[in-house]
């Protein structure tokens, strides 16, 4: 028994030394590779980019070839139609906010993609949608997106450019404006899709006080708690990026969702195997040396 524990400890110590050693290697590696044309130490990263791309592309091709991928339901997304429908019934507007960041942010782009889907629904229902934005570039892109969705819905005449308008770049100036807008126009449905910071709760609580259905989606982890607490539905992190696929239901989009899942499964598998090997290695340290296998798994994730 004693020897068992001893071997565990010895291997733990070795593992720690390995880690230190790896650090030392890292220091000398760039010097040796200085001549190289490629940036050193990014092999694992490159590999993962290729793997993810292949997974996504192959799944998209499969989807185009007619394979149907089933997806689990996401509550917030099935509520989109309901929310827009309710706004139509009540004769009140729909408010859409694509975050407060600029076009150099993927979340803003994802938010605008969702806007184009929601815009199509509002065009179908003939509901009024209002999109105040906090960046001039987002205004430009938002107008393109919304006009296209009205066109796609066969109602290009209902689209008015002024539905998407710039307010101010200033976070709280924008918040002051939107809060005021909410209590005055009383939108029946509020969508918050993009990157948000402190204004998340100010907007969501104001929306709550006017009894709007609120659906939020963000990848800003620090603001998720507030949306979860104050909105009816919240798309958490990855769900937010998956939303446009769900809403469009196009094969391409579904395929990419599948590719995303496959990548996730691979990451999970590497993680679980790596942890198992390391733990077994630590347990059986004296008997079998699994150090090289452990290091292999670490190098797989660039560690």
């Amino acid at each position: 028994m004693v020897s068992m524990i001893d071997s565990v400890l010895v291997s733990l110590t070795l593992a720690a030394q390995d880690a230190a050693g790896a650090g030392a290697d890292g220091a000398t590696a760039p010097a040796a590779a200085a001549e190289s044309f490629f940036v050193s130490g990014r092999g694992a990263l490159f590999g993962w980019l290729v793997v993810i791309s292949v997974f996504v592309l192959v799944s998209i091709m499969k989807a185009r070839a007619g394979k149907v991928f089933k997806v689990r339901p996401i509550a917030g997304l099935s509520a989109v139609d309901e929310a827009v429908g309710r706004a139509t019934e009540m004769g009140r507007p729909v408010l859409f906010i694509p975050g407060i960041q600029d076009m150099d942010n993927v979340q803003t782009i994802a938010g605008l993609t969702i806007l184009s889907r929601v815009g199509k629904t509002t065009a179908d229902y003939d509901a009024h949608i209002e999109v105040p934005v906090s960046r001039s570039l987002v205004m430009t892109a938002g107008r393109e997106a919304l006009s296209a969705s009205y066109l796609a819905a066969g109602r290009p005449d209902s689209f008015n450019e002024d539905q998407v308008y710039y307010v101010t770049d200033e976070q709280f100036g924008y918040t002051a404006y939107v809060s005021g807008l909410m209590v005055r126009k009383k939108p029946a449905a509020c969508f918050y899709m993009g990157q948000f910071f402190a204004e998340s709760l100010i907007l969501a609580e104001t929306g709550n006080s006017i009894g709007a259905i609120q659906i939020a989606g963000t990848a800003e982890t620090s603001q998720l708690p507030f949306f979860v607490a104050a909105c009816d539905y919240t798309l958490i992190g990855e769900e937010f990026f998956a939303a446009s696929a769900y809403l469009s239901g196009e094969p391409d989009q579904m395929g990419s969702l599948r590719g995303q899942d496959l990548s996730k499964a691979l990451v999970g598998a590497v993680l679980v195997l790596g942890v198992v090997v390391m733990t077994v290695g630590a347990l059986a340290g004296g008997l079998v040396d699994l150090g090289s296998v452990s290091r292999f798994f670490q190098s797989l994730v660039g560690g």
Partner: peptide, 29 residues
């Protein structure tokens, strides 16, 4: 959450670069 987001961003970026998703420029579907 962060790992999930990274994959979501990766897939979204890929779709945009390849022109599968282009609603931001008004030529959605």
């Amino acid at each position: 959450i962060i790992i999930g987001i990274a994959l979501g961003v990766a897939a979204t970026s890929l779709k945009i670069i390849l022109g599968i998703d282009r609603s931001y420029m008004g030529s959605g579907d």
